[in-house]
Design a protein around this nucleic acid. Structure first.
Lengths: 216, 216
DNA sequence: TAGATTGTTAATCGATTAACAATC
DNA sequence: TAGATTGTTAATCGATTAACAATC
Protein backbone atom coordinates (compact mmCIF):
# COMPACT_ATOMS: atom_id res chain seq x y z
CA UNK A 1 0.00 0.00 0.00
CA UNK A 2 2.76 2.45 0.93
CA UNK A 3 6.29 2.47 -0.40
CA UNK A 4 6.96 -0.16 -3.03
CA UNK A 5 10.60 0.36 -3.94
CA UNK A 6 10.66 -2.85 -6.00
CA UNK A 7 8.23 -1.40 -8.47
CA UNK A 8 10.83 0.48 -10.47
CA UNK A 9 8.89 1.05 -13.63
CA UNK A 10 10.89 2.03 -16.67
CA UNK A 11 9.24 4.56 -18.93
CA UNK A 12 8.85 3.09 -22.40
CA UNK A 13 8.86 6.46 -24.16
CA UNK A 14 12.20 6.96 -22.45
CA UNK A 15 13.53 3.58 -23.55
CA UNK A 16 12.56 4.38 -27.14
CA UNK A 17 14.64 7.57 -27.06
CA UNK A 18 17.81 5.82 -25.89
CA UNK A 19 18.99 4.51 -29.28
CA UNK A 20 18.97 8.03 -30.65
CA UNK A 21 21.17 9.31 -27.82
CA UNK A 22 23.46 6.34 -28.37
CA UNK A 23 23.83 7.33 -31.98
CA UNK A 24 24.77 10.88 -31.03
CA UNK A 25 27.20 9.66 -28.41
CA UNK A 26 28.97 7.40 -30.88
CA UNK A 27 29.40 10.36 -33.23
CA UNK A 28 30.80 12.53 -30.43
CA UNK A 29 33.09 9.70 -29.35
CA UNK A 30 34.37 9.22 -32.89
CA UNK A 31 35.16 12.93 -33.03
CA UNK A 32 37.29 12.57 -29.90
CA UNK A 33 34.79 14.03 -27.43
CA UNK A 34 35.15 12.93 -23.82
CA UNK A 35 32.52 14.80 -21.83
CA UNK A 36 28.97 15.73 -22.76
CA UNK A 37 26.21 17.57 -20.90
CA UNK A 38 22.51 16.82 -20.94
CA UNK A 39 22.04 20.24 -22.51
CA UNK A 40 24.20 19.33 -25.49
CA UNK A 41 22.35 16.04 -25.95
CA UNK A 42 19.08 17.91 -25.64
CA UNK A 43 19.97 20.33 -28.42
CA UNK A 44 21.19 17.55 -30.68
CA UNK A 45 18.18 15.32 -30.12
CA UNK A 46 15.39 17.87 -29.97
CA UNK A 47 14.22 16.71 -26.54
CA UNK A 48 14.19 18.98 -23.45
CA UNK A 49 17.19 18.64 -21.13
CA UNK A 50 15.15 17.35 -18.15
CA UNK A 51 13.84 14.55 -20.37
CA UNK A 52 17.37 13.64 -21.41
CA UNK A 53 18.49 13.53 -17.77
CA UNK A 54 15.55 11.35 -16.76
CA UNK A 55 16.17 9.02 -19.68
CA UNK A 56 19.84 8.65 -18.79
CA UNK A 57 18.86 8.01 -15.19
CA UNK A 58 16.88 4.89 -16.04
CA UNK A 59 20.02 3.30 -17.47
CA UNK A 60 21.83 3.77 -14.19
CA UNK A 61 24.52 5.99 -15.67
CA UNK A 62 25.86 8.76 -13.44
CA UNK A 63 27.35 12.11 -14.37
CA UNK A 64 29.52 14.54 -12.47
CA UNK A 65 27.72 17.51 -10.96
CA UNK A 66 28.79 20.71 -12.63
CA UNK A 67 30.67 18.83 -15.34
CA UNK A 68 28.58 16.39 -17.35
CA UNK A 69 28.68 12.75 -18.41
CA UNK A 70 31.75 10.80 -19.54
CA UNK A 71 30.88 9.81 -23.11
CA UNK A 72 32.60 6.42 -23.10
CA UNK A 73 30.93 5.43 -19.86
CA UNK A 74 27.55 6.68 -21.05
CA UNK A 75 27.77 4.60 -24.24
CA UNK A 76 28.61 1.52 -22.18
CA UNK A 77 25.70 2.09 -19.83
CA UNK A 78 23.17 2.72 -22.60
CA UNK A 79 24.29 -0.30 -24.61
CA UNK A 80 24.20 -2.45 -21.53
CA UNK A 81 20.73 -1.30 -20.50
CA UNK A 82 19.19 -1.71 -23.95
CA UNK A 83 20.87 -5.09 -24.30
CA UNK A 84 23.00 -4.24 -27.31
CA UNK A 85 26.33 -5.09 -25.73
CA UNK A 86 26.18 -8.73 -26.66
CA UNK A 87 24.03 -8.99 -29.80
CA UNK A 88 21.85 -12.04 -29.61
CA UNK A 89 21.33 -14.55 -32.37
CA UNK A 90 18.11 -14.04 -34.31
CA UNK A 91 16.28 -15.37 -37.34
CA UNK A 92 13.93 -13.68 -39.79
CA UNK A 93 10.81 -15.09 -41.48
CA UNK A 94 9.62 -13.60 -44.75
CA UNK A 95 12.40 -12.56 -47.10
CA UNK A 96 10.51 -9.95 -49.08
CA UNK A 97 11.74 -6.41 -49.72
CA UNK A 98 11.39 -5.29 -46.12
CA UNK A 99 12.90 -8.53 -44.82
CA UNK A 100 15.99 -8.00 -46.96
CA UNK A 101 16.40 -4.46 -45.68
CA UNK A 102 16.30 -5.64 -42.08
CA UNK A 103 18.78 -8.44 -42.74
CA UNK A 104 21.24 -5.76 -43.86
CA UNK A 105 20.63 -3.86 -40.67
CA UNK A 106 24.06 -2.24 -40.64
CA UNK A 107 22.57 0.45 -42.82
CA UNK A 108 19.74 1.00 -40.42
CA UNK A 109 21.77 1.58 -37.28
CA UNK A 110 20.21 -1.44 -35.73
CA UNK A 111 22.32 -3.23 -33.19
CA UNK A 112 21.67 -6.06 -30.85
CA UNK A 113 20.59 -8.56 -33.48
CA UNK A 114 22.85 -11.10 -35.13
CA UNK A 115 20.95 -12.79 -37.94
CA UNK A 116 22.06 -16.40 -38.31
CA UNK A 117 19.42 -17.50 -40.82
CA UNK A 118 16.33 -16.39 -42.73
CA UNK A 119 13.29 -18.37 -43.89
CA UNK A 120 10.59 -18.11 -46.52
CA UNK A 121 7.65 -20.25 -47.54
CA UNK A 122 8.41 -19.60 -51.22
CA UNK A 123 10.79 -22.32 -52.51
CA UNK A 124 12.04 -19.83 -55.10
CA UNK A 125 13.54 -17.71 -52.37
CA UNK A 126 15.13 -20.57 -50.45
CA UNK A 127 18.73 -21.75 -50.74
CA UNK A 128 19.97 -18.29 -51.64
CA UNK A 129 21.79 -15.57 -49.80
CA UNK A 130 20.24 -12.25 -48.81
CA UNK A 131 22.56 -9.60 -47.36
CA UNK A 132 25.09 -12.29 -46.40
CA UNK A 133 22.44 -14.30 -44.58
CA UNK A 134 21.47 -17.77 -45.82
CA UNK A 135 17.79 -18.21 -46.71
CA UNK A 136 16.13 -21.59 -46.01
CA UNK A 137 12.70 -23.00 -46.76
CA UNK A 138 10.35 -22.48 -43.85
CA UNK A 139 10.07 -26.23 -43.30
CA UNK A 140 13.59 -26.16 -41.88
CA UNK A 141 12.78 -23.36 -39.42
CA UNK A 142 11.62 -25.26 -36.31
CA UNK A 143 14.57 -27.65 -36.42
CA UNK A 144 17.15 -24.89 -36.81
CA UNK A 145 15.65 -22.73 -34.06
CA UNK A 146 15.71 -25.64 -31.62
CA UNK A 147 19.15 -26.76 -32.64
CA UNK A 148 20.75 -23.33 -32.27
CA UNK A 149 18.53 -22.41 -29.29
CA UNK A 150 17.47 -19.14 -30.93
CA UNK A 151 15.24 -16.94 -28.77
CA UNK A 152 14.60 -13.95 -31.04
CA UNK A 153 12.71 -13.72 -34.34
CA UNK A 154 11.66 -11.02 -36.78
CA UNK A 155 8.41 -11.49 -38.69
CA UNK A 156 8.15 -9.83 -42.10
CA UNK A 157 5.56 -12.07 -43.75
CA UNK A 158 2.19 -10.82 -45.07
CA UNK A 159 -0.51 -10.26 -42.44
CA UNK A 160 -2.43 -13.36 -43.46
CA UNK A 161 0.54 -15.61 -42.73
CA UNK A 162 1.79 -13.90 -39.58
CA UNK A 163 -0.18 -15.86 -36.98
CA UNK A 164 0.84 -19.21 -38.49
CA UNK A 165 4.47 -18.07 -38.50
CA UNK A 166 4.20 -16.93 -34.88
CA UNK A 167 2.71 -20.29 -33.86
CA UNK A 168 5.65 -22.11 -35.45
CA UNK A 169 8.14 -19.79 -33.79
CA UNK A 170 6.64 -20.08 -30.32
CA UNK A 171 6.37 -23.84 -30.60
CA UNK A 172 10.06 -23.96 -31.53
CA UNK A 173 11.08 -21.95 -28.47
CA UNK A 174 11.17 -18.31 -29.61
CA UNK A 175 10.62 -15.81 -26.76
CA UNK A 176 11.02 -12.43 -28.46
CA UNK A 177 9.13 -11.48 -31.61
CA UNK A 178 9.61 -8.27 -33.55
CA UNK A 179 6.69 -8.18 -35.95
CA UNK A 180 6.17 -5.96 -38.99
CA UNK A 181 2.88 -7.61 -39.95
CA UNK A 182 -0.21 -5.43 -39.38
CA UNK A 183 -2.01 -8.04 -37.26
CA UNK A 184 -2.42 -8.83 -33.60
CA UNK A 185 -0.39 -11.94 -32.78
CA UNK A 186 -1.81 -14.40 -30.30
CA UNK A 187 1.03 -15.73 -28.18
CA UNK A 188 1.51 -16.96 -24.59
CA UNK A 189 2.39 -14.41 -21.89
CA UNK A 190 5.92 -15.74 -21.75
CA UNK A 191 6.55 -14.44 -25.28
CA UNK A 192 7.20 -10.73 -25.79
CA UNK A 193 5.92 -9.18 -29.00
CA UNK A 194 6.82 -5.79 -30.41
CA UNK A 195 4.59 -4.74 -33.29
CA UNK A 196 5.94 -2.20 -35.72
CA UNK A 197 3.62 -0.14 -37.87
CA UNK A 198 5.12 2.27 -40.37
CA UNK A 199 1.75 3.67 -41.37
CA UNK A 200 1.31 4.95 -37.80
CA UNK A 201 4.15 7.38 -38.39
CA UNK A 202 2.68 8.50 -41.69
CA UNK A 203 -0.70 9.13 -40.08
CA UNK A 204 0.99 11.15 -37.34
CA UNK A 205 2.85 13.22 -39.92
CA UNK A 206 -0.29 14.07 -41.86
CA UNK A 207 -2.34 14.99 -38.78
CA UNK A 208 0.48 16.99 -37.15
CA UNK A 209 0.92 18.90 -40.37
CA UNK A 210 -2.78 19.76 -40.46
CA UNK A 211 -2.64 20.97 -36.84
CA UNK A 212 0.47 22.96 -37.72
CA UNK A 213 -1.31 24.66 -40.60
CA UNK A 214 -4.38 25.57 -38.61
CA UNK A 215 -2.16 27.21 -36.00
CA UNK A 216 -0.79 29.55 -38.63
CA UNK B 1 -8.49 31.03 -18.47
CA UNK B 2 -11.71 29.05 -18.16
CA UNK B 3 -13.32 27.04 -20.92
CA UNK B 4 -11.36 26.99 -24.13
CA UNK B 5 -13.50 24.90 -26.46
CA UNK B 6 -11.30 25.75 -29.45
CA UNK B 7 -8.40 23.86 -27.94
CA UNK B 8 -9.49 20.48 -29.26
CA UNK B 9 -6.24 18.63 -28.92
CA UNK B 10 -6.03 15.34 -30.78
CA UNK B 11 -4.21 12.60 -28.95
CA UNK B 12 -1.23 11.48 -31.02
CA UNK B 13 -1.11 7.98 -29.53
CA UNK B 14 -4.70 7.73 -30.70
CA UNK B 15 -3.89 8.96 -34.19
CA UNK B 16 -1.13 6.37 -34.46
CA UNK B 17 -3.60 3.58 -33.70
CA UNK B 18 -6.03 4.59 -36.44
CA UNK B 19 -4.24 2.94 -39.39
CA UNK B 20 -4.40 -0.41 -37.62
CA UNK B 21 -8.16 -0.12 -37.12
CA UNK B 22 -8.50 0.90 -40.74
CA UNK B 23 -6.70 -2.25 -41.76
CA UNK B 24 -9.05 -4.39 -39.68
CA UNK B 25 -12.08 -2.59 -41.04
CA UNK B 26 -11.00 -3.16 -44.62
CA UNK B 27 -10.68 -6.88 -43.91
CA UNK B 28 -14.13 -6.99 -42.30
CA UNK B 29 -15.56 -5.01 -45.20
CA UNK B 30 -14.01 -7.37 -47.74
CA UNK B 31 -15.58 -10.30 -45.89
CA UNK B 32 -18.98 -8.68 -46.27
CA UNK B 33 -19.32 -7.30 -42.74
CA UNK B 34 -21.60 -4.30 -42.28
CA UNK B 35 -21.62 -3.51 -38.57
CA UNK B 36 -18.82 -3.69 -36.02
CA UNK B 37 -18.70 -2.91 -32.31
CA UNK B 38 -15.86 -1.29 -30.41
CA UNK B 39 -15.55 -4.54 -28.49
CA UNK B 40 -14.83 -6.50 -31.66
CA UNK B 41 -12.25 -3.96 -32.77
CA UNK B 42 -10.74 -4.05 -29.30
CA UNK B 43 -10.27 -7.81 -29.40
CA UNK B 44 -8.82 -7.72 -32.89
CA UNK B 45 -6.42 -4.88 -32.16
CA UNK B 46 -5.33 -5.72 -28.64
CA UNK B 47 -6.40 -2.32 -27.29
CA UNK B 48 -9.08 -1.90 -24.58
CA UNK B 49 -12.58 -1.08 -25.83
CA UNK B 50 -12.71 2.39 -24.20
CA UNK B 51 -9.51 3.30 -26.02
CA UNK B 52 -11.01 2.18 -29.32
CA UNK B 53 -14.11 4.27 -28.68
CA UNK B 54 -12.07 7.36 -27.79
CA UNK B 55 -9.91 6.89 -30.86
CA UNK B 56 -12.92 6.60 -33.12
CA UNK B 57 -14.39 9.68 -31.49
CA UNK B 58 -11.51 11.92 -32.58
CA UNK B 59 -12.28 11.14 -36.21
CA UNK B 60 -15.83 12.40 -35.79
CA UNK B 61 -17.41 9.05 -36.68
CA UNK B 62 -20.62 8.18 -34.86
CA UNK B 63 -22.05 4.78 -34.02
CA UNK B 64 -25.55 3.66 -33.15
CA UNK B 65 -26.20 3.12 -29.44
CA UNK B 66 -26.81 -0.53 -28.73
CA UNK B 67 -25.79 -1.53 -32.23
CA UNK B 68 -22.27 -0.49 -33.23
CA UNK B 69 -20.55 1.31 -36.09
CA UNK B 70 -21.35 1.01 -39.78
CA UNK B 71 -18.13 -0.38 -41.26
CA UNK B 72 -18.29 1.46 -44.58
CA UNK B 73 -18.94 4.77 -42.87
CA UNK B 74 -16.19 4.16 -40.32
CA UNK B 75 -13.65 3.45 -43.06
CA UNK B 76 -14.66 6.69 -44.79
CA UNK B 77 -14.32 8.72 -41.61
CA UNK B 78 -10.96 7.25 -40.65
CA UNK B 79 -9.51 7.71 -44.13
CA UNK B 80 -10.80 11.23 -44.25
CA UNK B 81 -9.41 12.15 -40.84
CA UNK B 82 -5.97 10.66 -41.46
CA UNK B 83 -5.86 12.29 -44.88
CA UNK B 84 -5.66 9.10 -46.91
CA UNK B 85 -8.74 9.71 -48.98
CA UNK B 86 -6.94 11.69 -51.63
CA UNK B 87 -3.34 10.48 -51.65
CA UNK B 88 -1.02 13.40 -52.13
CA UNK B 89 1.89 13.51 -54.51
CA UNK B 90 5.25 12.88 -52.87
CA UNK B 91 8.90 12.38 -53.72
CA UNK B 92 11.61 10.32 -52.06
CA UNK B 93 15.32 11.16 -51.60
CA UNK B 94 17.84 8.35 -51.16
CA UNK B 95 17.09 5.28 -53.22
CA UNK B 96 18.92 2.73 -51.07
CA UNK B 97 17.40 -0.52 -49.84
CA UNK B 98 14.98 1.15 -47.47
CA UNK B 99 14.05 3.79 -50.02
CA UNK B 100 13.13 1.10 -52.54
CA UNK B 101 10.93 -0.66 -49.99
CA UNK B 102 9.03 2.53 -49.27
CA UNK B 103 8.57 3.29 -52.96
CA UNK B 104 6.78 -0.05 -53.26
CA UNK B 105 4.55 0.89 -50.37
CA UNK B 106 1.66 -1.26 -51.51
CA UNK B 107 3.30 -4.11 -49.65
CA UNK B 108 3.56 -2.06 -46.51
CA UNK B 109 -0.05 -1.06 -46.22
CA UNK B 110 0.92 2.54 -46.58
CA UNK B 111 -1.67 4.78 -48.12
CA UNK B 112 -1.89 8.46 -48.62
CA UNK B 113 1.32 8.85 -50.59
CA UNK B 114 1.59 8.85 -54.34
CA UNK B 115 5.25 8.80 -55.32
CA UNK B 116 5.81 10.72 -58.53
CA UNK B 117 9.61 10.65 -58.51
CA UNK B 118 12.68 9.59 -56.54
CA UNK B 119 16.15 11.13 -56.30
CA UNK B 120 19.66 10.05 -55.41
CA UNK B 121 23.03 11.78 -55.30
CA UNK B 122 24.69 8.73 -56.82
CA UNK B 123 24.69 9.06 -60.65
CA UNK B 124 24.75 5.26 -60.88
CA UNK B 125 21.28 5.09 -59.39
CA UNK B 126 19.81 7.85 -61.51
CA UNK B 127 17.84 7.40 -64.73
CA UNK B 128 16.51 4.02 -63.65
CA UNK B 129 13.21 2.76 -62.31
CA UNK B 130 12.64 1.56 -58.79
CA UNK B 131 9.29 -0.03 -58.00
CA UNK B 132 7.73 1.68 -61.01
CA UNK B 133 8.99 5.08 -59.88
CA UNK B 134 11.52 6.98 -61.98
CA UNK B 135 14.80 7.83 -60.24
CA UNK B 136 16.51 11.13 -61.08
CA UNK B 137 19.81 12.66 -60.08
CA UNK B 138 19.39 14.92 -57.04
CA UNK B 139 20.38 17.98 -59.08
CA UNK B 140 16.98 17.78 -60.75
CA UNK B 141 15.12 17.67 -57.46
CA UNK B 142 14.46 21.37 -56.71
CA UNK B 143 13.21 22.05 -60.22
CA UNK B 144 10.84 19.11 -60.27
CA UNK B 145 9.44 19.85 -56.81
CA UNK B 146 8.70 23.45 -57.77
CA UNK B 147 7.30 22.52 -61.15
CA UNK B 148 4.90 19.89 -59.81
CA UNK B 149 4.24 21.83 -56.58
CA UNK B 150 5.06 18.80 -54.42
CA UNK B 151 4.54 19.37 -50.69
CA UNK B 152 5.55 16.00 -49.22
CA UNK B 153 8.93 14.28 -49.15
CA UNK B 154 10.43 11.12 -47.68
CA UNK B 155 14.10 11.19 -46.62
CA UNK B 156 15.99 7.89 -46.72
CA UNK B 157 19.53 9.18 -47.13
CA UNK B 158 22.37 8.46 -44.66
CA UNK B 159 22.37 10.58 -41.50
CA UNK B 160 25.31 12.68 -42.67
CA UNK B 161 23.45 13.84 -45.77
CA UNK B 162 20.01 14.30 -44.23
CA UNK B 163 20.29 17.96 -43.21
CA UNK B 164 21.57 18.99 -46.64
CA UNK B 165 18.71 17.10 -48.26
CA UNK B 166 16.20 18.74 -45.91
CA UNK B 167 17.58 22.19 -46.73
CA UNK B 168 17.13 21.53 -50.44
CA UNK B 169 13.60 20.24 -49.90
CA UNK B 170 12.47 23.16 -47.74
CA UNK B 171 14.00 25.66 -50.13
CA UNK B 172 12.06 24.04 -52.97
CA UNK B 173 8.75 24.32 -51.12
CA UNK B 174 8.32 21.00 -49.27
CA UNK B 175 6.10 21.28 -46.17
CA UNK B 176 5.90 17.69 -44.89
CA UNK B 177 8.99 15.56 -44.30
CA UNK B 178 8.93 11.92 -43.29
CA UNK B 179 12.52 11.18 -42.28
CA UNK B 180 14.16 7.83 -41.69
CA UNK B 181 17.59 9.34 -41.00
CA UNK B 182 18.72 9.13 -37.36
CA UNK B 183 19.37 12.87 -37.05
CA UNK B 184 17.53 15.92 -35.86
CA UNK B 185 16.51 18.01 -38.85
CA UNK B 186 16.64 21.76 -38.56
CA UNK B 187 13.68 23.22 -40.43
CA UNK B 188 11.38 26.26 -40.14
CA UNK B 189 8.25 25.96 -37.98
CA UNK B 190 6.09 25.92 -41.09
CA UNK B 191 7.55 22.53 -42.05
CA UNK B 192 6.31 19.41 -40.25
CA UNK B 193 8.82 16.63 -39.69
CA UNK B 194 8.09 13.08 -38.62
CA UNK B 195 11.20 11.16 -37.62
CA UNK B 196 11.07 7.39 -37.81
CA UNK B 197 13.46 5.28 -35.79
CA UNK B 198 13.31 1.51 -36.20
CA UNK B 199 15.87 0.90 -33.49
CA UNK B 200 13.48 2.46 -30.96
CA UNK B 201 11.14 -0.47 -31.46
CA UNK B 202 13.97 -2.96 -31.08
CA UNK B 203 15.09 -1.33 -27.83
CA UNK B 204 11.53 -1.46 -26.55
CA UNK B 205 11.26 -5.15 -27.43
CA UNK B 206 14.46 -6.06 -25.59
CA UNK B 207 13.62 -4.07 -22.45
CA UNK B 208 9.99 -5.26 -22.35
CA UNK B 209 11.19 -8.82 -22.66
CA UNK B 210 13.55 -8.35 -19.72
CA UNK B 211 10.74 -6.89 -17.62
CA UNK B 212 8.54 -9.79 -18.69
CA UNK B 213 11.13 -12.31 -17.56
CA UNK B 214 11.71 -10.71 -14.17
CA UNK B 215 7.97 -10.81 -13.54
CA UNK B 216 8.05 -14.59 -13.84
C1' DT C 1 -38.97 -5.52 -22.80
C1' DA C 2 -34.22 -7.21 -22.19
C1' DG C 3 -29.73 -7.16 -23.93
C1' DA C 4 -26.21 -4.69 -26.03
C1' DT C 5 -23.48 -0.90 -27.06
C1' DT C 6 -22.42 4.01 -27.59
C1' DG C 7 -20.88 8.23 -25.71
C1' DT C 8 -19.63 10.80 -21.79
C1' DT C 9 -18.05 11.95 -17.28
C1' DA C 10 -15.02 11.14 -13.30
C1' DA C 11 -10.85 8.84 -11.31
C1' DT C 12 -6.39 7.11 -11.89
C1' DC C 13 -2.14 6.81 -13.59
C1' DG C 14 2.16 7.98 -15.83
C1' DA C 15 4.99 11.21 -18.33
C1' DT C 16 6.60 15.71 -18.93
C1' DT C 17 7.80 20.20 -17.24
C1' DA C 18 9.43 23.42 -13.84
C1' DA C 19 12.22 24.57 -10.03
C1' DC C 20 16.09 24.24 -7.23
C1' DA C 21 19.37 22.40 -3.86
C1' DA C 22 23.73 19.99 -3.99
C1' DT C 23 28.26 20.02 -5.72
C1' DC C 24 32.06 19.88 -8.89
C1' DT D 1 34.86 31.87 -5.69
C1' DA D 2 31.72 31.91 -9.66
C1' DG D 3 29.75 29.34 -13.24
C1' DA D 4 27.90 25.19 -14.72
C1' DT D 5 25.51 21.05 -14.43
C1' DT D 6 23.66 16.96 -12.13
C1' DG D 7 20.07 14.76 -9.65
C1' DT D 8 15.86 15.15 -7.25
C1' DT D 9 11.48 16.83 -5.77
C1' DA D 10 7.02 19.07 -6.73
C1' DA D 11 3.54 20.71 -10.17
C1' DT D 12 1.34 20.16 -14.42
C1' DC D 13 -0.42 17.97 -18.04
C1' DG D 14 -2.32 14.39 -20.92
C1' DA D 15 -3.66 9.66 -21.64
C1' DT D 16 -5.75 5.64 -19.98
C1' DT D 17 -9.04 3.26 -17.16
C1' DA D 18 -13.36 2.73 -14.82
C1' DA D 19 -18.13 3.57 -14.38
C1' DC D 20 -22.54 4.44 -16.01
C1' DA D 21 -26.44 6.91 -18.04
C1' DA D 22 -28.67 7.19 -22.48
C1' DT D 23 -30.74 4.67 -26.06
C1' DC D 24 -31.26 1.55 -29.89
Amino acid sequence: MSGEPTKRITSMPGVRRLPFYLNLLRCLHAEGGEIVSAITLAEASGHPAPVVKKDIEITGAAGKTGVGYEIGDLIEKLEDFIGWKNPQDAILVGVGHLGCVLLGHDNLNLRGLNFVAAFDSDPERADRMCQDVKVFHISKMPGLIKQLRIKTAVITVPAAEAQAAADLLVEAGIRLIWSFAPTLLNVPDSVTVQREDLSAGLAELLVKSRLNESMG
